[in-house]
Protein backbone atom coordinates (compact mmCIF):
# COMPACT_ATOMS: atom_id res chain seq x y z
CA UNK A 1 0.00 0.00 0.00
CA UNK A 2 2.91 2.36 0.84
CA UNK A 3 2.10 5.89 -0.28
CA UNK A 4 -1.64 5.30 -0.12
CA UNK A 5 -1.27 4.35 3.51
CA UNK A 6 -0.24 7.94 4.29
CA UNK A 7 -3.61 9.40 3.45
CA UNK A 8 -5.43 6.70 5.44
CA UNK A 9 -3.62 7.16 8.70
CA UNK A 10 -2.14 10.03 10.66
CA UNK A 11 -3.85 12.54 12.94
CA UNK A 12 -5.87 14.30 10.22
CA UNK A 13 -7.35 11.04 9.01
CA UNK A 14 -8.10 9.93 12.54
CA UNK A 15 -9.77 13.23 13.35
CA UNK A 16 -11.85 12.90 10.19
CA UNK A 17 -13.02 9.41 11.14
CA UNK A 18 -13.81 10.40 14.73
CA UNK A 19 -15.69 13.47 13.49
CA UNK A 20 -17.75 11.44 11.07
CA UNK A 21 -18.60 8.88 13.77
CA UNK A 22 -19.84 11.65 16.08
CA UNK A 23 -21.70 13.43 13.27
CA UNK A 24 -23.24 10.20 11.96
CA UNK A 25 -24.51 9.18 15.39
CA UNK A 26 -25.47 12.43 17.13
CA UNK A 27 -26.10 14.58 14.05
CA UNK A 28 -28.24 11.99 12.30
CA UNK A 29 -30.22 11.40 15.48
CA UNK A 30 -30.89 15.10 16.07
CA UNK A 31 -31.93 15.75 12.46
CA UNK A 32 -34.14 12.63 12.40
CA UNK A 33 -35.71 13.66 15.72
CA UNK A 34 -36.52 17.13 14.40
CA UNK A 35 -38.04 15.63 11.25
CA UNK A 36 -40.08 13.13 13.29
CA UNK A 37 -41.41 15.88 15.55
CA UNK A 38 -42.21 18.11 12.57
CA UNK A 39 -44.00 15.36 10.62
CA UNK A 40 -45.92 14.34 13.76
CA UNK A 41 -47.33 17.86 13.94
CA UNK A 42 -47.85 18.53 10.24
CA UNK A 43 -48.78 15.29 8.43
CA UNK A 44 -52.41 15.62 7.31
CA UNK A 45 -53.48 12.57 9.33
CA UNK A 46 -55.14 11.87 12.65
CA UNK A 47 -52.72 12.85 15.43
CA UNK A 48 -51.87 9.28 16.48
CA UNK A 49 -51.36 8.24 12.85
CA UNK A 50 -49.03 11.15 12.12
CA UNK A 51 -46.91 10.24 15.16
CA UNK A 52 -46.77 6.56 14.20
CA UNK A 53 -45.97 7.18 10.53
CA UNK A 54 -43.24 9.69 11.40
CA UNK A 55 -41.73 7.41 14.03
CA UNK A 56 -41.71 4.37 11.71
CA UNK A 57 -39.91 6.45 9.10
CA UNK A 58 -37.35 7.87 11.54
CA UNK A 59 -35.03 4.83 11.56
CA UNK A 60 -34.74 4.90 7.79
CA UNK A 61 -33.93 8.61 8.01
CA UNK A 62 -31.20 8.06 10.62
CA UNK A 63 -29.68 5.29 8.51
CA UNK A 64 -29.65 7.29 5.28
CA UNK A 65 -28.17 10.32 7.04
CA UNK A 66 -25.46 8.17 8.63
CA UNK A 67 -24.63 6.67 5.23
CA UNK A 68 -24.47 10.18 3.75
CA UNK A 69 -22.06 11.34 6.48
CA UNK A 70 -19.62 8.59 5.53
CA UNK A 71 -20.15 8.96 1.80
CA UNK A 72 -19.68 12.76 1.78
CA UNK A 73 -16.50 14.13 0.22
CA UNK A 74 -15.37 15.74 3.45
CA UNK A 75 -16.35 15.99 7.09
CA UNK A 76 -16.91 19.75 6.77
CA UNK A 77 -19.27 19.29 3.88
CA UNK A 78 -21.28 16.62 5.74
CA UNK A 79 -21.43 18.79 8.87
CA UNK A 80 -22.58 21.79 6.86
CA UNK A 81 -25.32 19.83 5.09
CA UNK A 82 -26.63 18.25 8.28
CA UNK A 83 -26.40 21.59 10.09
CA UNK A 84 -28.37 23.43 7.42
CA UNK A 85 -31.01 20.70 7.16
CA UNK A 86 -31.27 20.62 10.94
CA UNK A 87 -31.66 24.40 11.15
CA UNK A 88 -34.34 24.39 8.45
CA UNK A 89 -36.23 21.61 10.24
CA UNK A 90 -35.89 23.39 13.60
CA UNK A 91 -37.27 26.59 12.05
CA UNK A 92 -40.18 24.71 10.50
CA UNK A 93 -40.84 22.93 13.79
CA UNK A 94 -40.85 26.29 15.58
CA UNK A 95 -43.37 27.63 13.06
CA UNK A 96 -45.50 24.51 13.56
CA UNK A 97 -45.61 25.26 17.28
CA UNK A 98 -43.33 22.45 18.32
CA UNK A 99 -41.38 24.58 20.79
CA UNK A 100 -44.24 26.67 22.22
CA UNK A 101 -45.63 26.00 25.68
CA UNK A 102 -48.22 23.22 25.66
CA UNK A 103 -51.61 24.69 24.89
CA UNK A 104 -55.01 23.25 25.80
CA UNK A 105 -55.47 19.72 24.59
CA UNK A 106 -56.77 19.62 21.04
Amino acid sequence: MGARQERWSGPAYRFGVAGRVVLASLGSYVVASLLTALLSLTLPLVRSEAVTAATLLSFLVITLLALYVFAARSLGRAALTLGLVGLALAAALWLAGGFSAPGPAA
Binding site: T36, A37, L39, R47, A50, V51, T55, S58, L93
Partner: peptide
Protein backbone atom coordinates in the same frame (compact mmCIF):
# COMPACT_ATOMS: atom_id res chain seq x y z
CA UNK B 1 -35.40 5.33 20.95
CA UNK B 2 -37.45 7.93 19.08
CA UNK B 3 -40.05 9.49 21.41
CA UNK B 4 -39.86 12.97 19.85
CA UNK B 5 -42.88 12.67 17.56
CA UNK B 6 -44.97 11.54 20.51
CA UNK B 7 -43.58 14.32 22.70
CA UNK B 8 -44.22 17.00 20.07
CA UNK B 9 -47.80 15.94 19.38
CA UNK B 10 -48.95 14.83 22.84
Amino acid sequence: LMPWGLVAAY
